[in-house]
């Protein structure tokens, strides 16, 4: 199944392909970012790259029916919308449920760290949670004196929500709050 879109194909340098510079003197890694198509059969699948008719080794990936892709970031693009944050890091984290993936866009930094709330992991998880920097985004979580991600939950009340979870779930980043 061909992905819906290939967002990126290039050398593995930050921020496009993560924080690490994996295309350097010693390594020549590249990366490809793609979106899973809705017609992909559920269950265990393989990712294969074919270049000039030569196929790569397969890398396993499980396509799931449950779970959501949440996008946490500023709305739209341009000078004006960027001044109005649509969401904060913690809002996205609060909205996570089993199998969800939270993509964090540029400008959302949590230098004080984040804590995954009880609601996200209180019950038995059926699929992993993931917090991923949006392809090409530079996001900082924690700093030299703060842990990046904690899973100790003493309640969700202390999270500084500025918008409702519903604003995040299933709503594109360009949608107005």
């Amino acid at each position: 199944m061909t992905p819906t879109a290939i967002l990126l194909l290039g050398n593995a340098t930050p921020p496009s392909c993560g924080a690490a510079t994996l295309f350097n003197t010693y390594r020549k890694l590249q990366c490809i970012t793609f979106q899973v198509d809705h017609a992909t059969p559920p269950g265990a699948q393989n990712i294969v790259v074919t270049v000039n008719g030569i196929a790569s080794n397969p890398v396993p990936f499980t396509s799931a029916d449950d779970g959501d892709d949440l996008v946490c970031g500023f709305r739209g693009v341009g000078p004006e919308p960027l001044r109005v944050p649509m969401a904060r890091f913690k809002v996205g984290v609060n909205a996570l449920n089993s199998g969800d993936i939270l993509y964090v866009k540029d400008g959302l930094n949590a230098t004080g760290g984040i804590v995954v709330p009880r609601s996200s992991h209180y019950s038995i998880a059926t699929a992993p949670l993931a917090i991923v920097a949006y392809p090409g985004a530079a996001v900082q979580v924690g700093d030299s004196t703060h842990d990046g991600i904690g899973i100790t939950c003493s309640g969700c009340g202390y999270l500084d929500d500025v918008c409702q979870a519903g604003d995040l779930r299933g709503i594109p980043s360009g949608h107005p709050p």
């Binding site: 819906t4 879109a5 967002l7 990126l8 194909l9 593995a12 392909c17 993560g18 994996l22 020549k28 890694l29 590249q30 990366c31 490809i32 970012t33 793609f34 979106q35 899973v36 198509d37 809705h38 992909t40 990712i47 790259v49 270049v51 000039n52 790569s56 890398v59 990936f61 396509s63 892709d69 993936i101 993509y103 991923v132 949006y134 392809p135």
Partner: peptide, 14 residues
């Protein structure tokens, strides 16, 4: 409509 954004790393990917 569609799902997750996935990134793979490798070599000689064109």
């Amino acid at each position: 409509q569609d799902g997750a954004l996935v990134t793979v790393w490798g070599q000689n990917l064109g």
